[in-house]
Design a protein around this nucleic acid. Structure first.
Lengths: 192, 192
DNA sequence: GGCGGCATACATACTAGTATGTATGCTGTC
DNA sequence: GACAGCATACATACTAGTATGTATGCCGCC
């Protein structure tokens, strides 16, 4: 029938963390969401932090996979970046990984923080490499600083979620994405 | 002696919301942080949601004030945007207003969401107007879309906080800011 | 056919969160 | 000097969060 209890616990916890963060995610809520009994939870995991770590690792893994897929397409650097920025997203739901940066419990613990940090590093690396290829191919005549550009693009995504949630509308996210893409495209040979 | 209990409650709640969000902010923690008695809290406010609203409104007010000040300086549009982006920030602490976009309790309640939405609207309006002036003055020869550019800049700030927190370092924030500024500058008229 | 691993149910317990209500005292004003 | 407004302390209460421990049952494997 359903996937085993361990998998369901991870998925339920993942969703709750995504929606409500660390303190907002209670063991009983996890059980209800996952549809498993309380005993199973303590059977498979040492407790909330252990389960949270497993859920985080799963989110990080899925996200890194999506990132890799989005960049593993043919096309110019600009096309690949555009494709990544425009990929299917449940914008108002936000980023399952980025959400956790708001939780002090997670940020204060190096083990819990690691999957988040690593995911952003992976994204940065993909963006960095793609921008570098674009510069090498003469797509960005302005030759923007590679790391700075990669960071700006990553930040626009994360910040776009915040703007969209505040407005309860997808539009601000899309606007920010179009904005950074326009700026990239407009990158002209410059004199500085 | 100290400011009155009402003020101290607002400030304590403001700080706790900033650090820990809505669910992470308990009445007892508020009392401890504010240094007032429990009775006073229920004397001045109807309860947690009422106090949270007051704290949010205060944060929004302060933030809008800082935004207005940062843009109320002489200089070209690019200088004013650079100044706003480079203004003094406790980056790892994050944004006292943007933090709340992660809380479903806040986002689901129109009254609690209003101060956040309004603050982003005010920021957008300042950025929009400044970019428009820059375009009019020929500073941005690429004539980027005004609203899109404003949204991208606002998003970079909010997203920069997330990147910085994940890395527990200010550098990713600064890099993202330099990145978007470079892209903006690169759309400047060629002087060569 | 028993045993180890996994799942479920149920009882218990302690703490924190979120209050309400009452008593008491301080202070400034009419 | 009485009274309103504000502050503090203390008692009480209910719920949710975070477990621990025990009993029981199913299933696949040696």
């Amino acid at each position: 029938m359903k996937p085993n209890a361990r998998e369901r616990l991870i998925e339920g916890t993942r969703q709750l963390l995504w929606e409500r963060g660390y303190v907002g995610t209670s063991p009983t809520a996890i059980l209800a969401r996952s549809g498993v009994g309380q005993g199973s939870m303590y059977h498979h995991f040492d407790g909330k932090p252990d389960l949270v770590l497993a859920a985080e690792q799963r989110s990080a893994e899925l996200m890194q996979q999506q990132i890799a897929e989005a960049f593993a397409v043919e096309g110019t650097a600009l096309e690949r970046i555009t494709r990544y920025l425009g990929r299917e997203r449940d914008v108002l739901r936000g980023c399952s990984v980025g959400r956790l940066t708001a939780d002090p419990e997670v940020m204060a613990d190096d083990t819990l923080r690691a999957p988040i940090r690593e995911t952003f590093e992976v994204l940065h690396e993909h963006l960095r490499r793609t921008v570098a290829e674009g510069v090498a191919a003469g797509e960005f005549a302005g030759e923007p600083d590679i790391d700075e550009t990669a960071s700006a693009i990553a930040a626009v995504i994360q910040g776009g979620y915040a703007l969209a949630r505040a407005a309860q509308a997808v539009e601000p996210f899309d606007r920010a994405v179009r904005g950074v893409l326009s700026l990239l495209r407009a990158s002209a040979p410059r004199s500085n």
